[in-house]
Design a protein around this nucleic acid. Structure first.
Lengths: 125, 125, 125, 125
DNA sequence: GTGGTCTAGACCACT
DNA sequence: GTGGTCTAGACCACC
């Protein structure tokens, strides 16, 4: 067993995930114009090059296209969006099952606890 | 919407979570003797004071007790263990539901996808 | 008709093509260790970051894999090599046909001239 | 093996090739009047002197003649045109064979692949 | 102002 | 010494 301290994920990859999430959730709607690189970088407090690295990955995955001079647009490909959402959901599911398995819960048990789980009411901390 | 870049969680808290997980999973069995502070700190590559802070939190939660002479022992209280496992499982469940909700999946849908999910077979890269 | 003066291809892409060609021709054999980033950059007379950009693309295309600390290896995947050679050959074929078409030669004529072409013997300039 | 980065071809030579191609393809018909130097230079975005150098080479090759009074005319010599087309075609053929040879394809194989090549249909990106 | 590229130089983890 | 990341700052082409 090892000590997973820091995330160790490169910043550009974290930015990429955030951007992908924003597309997946419709915060940046399909076909809409994304903010300028320098603006995004300013918001996130990182160097423009780092943000550009994230956006390049976004483009490599077909989630955005850049018009050299007219800014960058979110893809209009609905299938790409579907695949993205599928990918993210899969990741969440695996993370949940893995964490529960580490606690010794079988998959069936993990499902059962999820079904029976009730939003705690006014619970502190 | 904000940019959650690095976790920014204090290191001692991350260490505390790791230690709690080790107890919850039985890596450190109930009533067993835990490694010395300096040893743990050495493993994790952190300052002994930082590890001490994590262990103090562990004691505050009733998950460990320190005998000045006999080192530090994992609690023998089975209920505390149960509560810990419950707390962790709850956290995982909430994280899962929150993430799926952000993607627009209702709770019922989140449960359904979890049930129907199949481990991908022979996936490359 | 426009003036295609400079190639305008980014340097990193030209480097990528050169590296791919070296792999395709066996100059860097399958599974062999590639020179260090800084060494390649020095040879090519470019900034190490630029060479790294090219190598990252090489890796994204599955033509090389990097062992974080132990250097970078050419892929051992023979299929990837085949696909690369196919891609390059296709490019050459298209370039040839396009050029000949610009001169008014039909495809059949382009093939015919290629078949009948004889290496000039001792021709000057 | 060396790094052929930028073409490094002098600009005037690139301009010369473009002009020759325009004559070879009939874009500037035999015997027709060519645009003025300044106009051509303006189109290409280069210094008139540079364009002049290209045109001088064109004249040296007998592809154009300049009348002090009547501007510059494309040659009326059909043979010169034939030779030009032959030279260009030869260059394309050699380039193709050389490239294929570098990939390890024999000349016979290069011809065969060209014959069997099919325009990819409905290719995306 | 936009995206993109390139350089120079630093830092990190790993071995 | 290795690959990788990050920053800071500059330049270019396009509109």
């Amino acid at each position: 067993m090892s000590w997973n301290l820091a995330d160790a994920k490169p910043i550009w990859m974290q930015l990429y995930e955030q951007l992908a999430l924003r597309i997946a959730t419709g915060f940046y709607p399909l076909g809409s114009r994304m903010p300028a690189v320098r603006e995004l970088a300013g918001e996130a407090g990182v160097n423009p090059n780092t943000m550009q690295r994230a956006l390049a990955q976004l483009e490599a995955d077909g989630l955005a296209v850049s018009n050299r001079t007219a800014g960058r647009l979110v893809t209009e490909d609905g299938d790409a969006l579907s695949r993205l959402r599928q990918r993210l959901a899969d990741g969440y599911i695996r993370a949940y099952l893995t964490s529960m398995a580490a606690l010794g819960f079988s998959r069936a048990c993990a499902v059962k606890r999820l079904e029976e789980w009730e939003e705690p009411t006014c619970q502190k901390t």
